[in-house]
């Protein structure tokens, strides 16, 4: 299953992140995970949110440059070696990870690892074949980290 990650372009200067979170807060969009990649003068803020469509609409309306990207949200075990099982498998299949980040779902039980890859269909098939579960937008929206829905 595929998750839609939101990517926002921002100049590398104070106030840019605050502008974005203000928009999302006002729209009552919940942020699940975020990463920022920057160069000296600009950067890209990546977000996993509970309602991507609503978020995009609000961000666009405010004039920020935003796009969505399909990523895979893989459920892994939250224990030593949990992530390693996934990455070893990706390596074996020669799947290159362009960007990745994770968040804990249920402490010491499950976590989510978000990966951005080139051939998403192939990667998804292989990941699922290896026995990993993946989330879609709806499932992600329903997830309540640290509290919890069983999968």
């Amino acid at each position: 299953m595929i998750v839609h990650q939101i990517s926002v372009f921002a100049e590398n200067k104070p106030g840019q992140l605050a502008r974005l979170t203000r928009i999302l807060g006002k729209e009552k969009v919940n942020i699940r995970a975020t990463t920022i990649a920057t160069t000296a003068t600009f950067g890209v803020i990546n977000l996993i949110v509970d309602d991507p469509q609503k978020a995009i609409k609000a961000i666009k309306k405010d004039g920020m440059m935003v796009t969505t990207k399909e990523v895979i949200a893989v459920i892994i075990e939250d224990k030593p070696g949990g992530l390693d099982r996934l990455t070893q498998m990706l390596f074996k299949e020669n799947i290159n990870v362009n960007n990745a980040y994770g968040f804990v779902l249920d402490s010491w039980k499950t976590a989510v690892f978000v990966v951005e890859v080139d051939d998403i269909a192939r990667a998804q098939k292989l990941i699922e074949k290896a026995g990993f579960k993946t989330l879609d937008d709806d499932a992600l929206s329903a997830v309540e980290p640290f509290h919890y829905v069983k999968y």
Partner: peptide
């Protein structure tokens, strides 16, 4: 042009 890819921007 923007697709979230930082490398492309660079």
């Amino acid at each position: 042009f923007f697709d979230g890819d930082l490398l492309k921007l660079e």
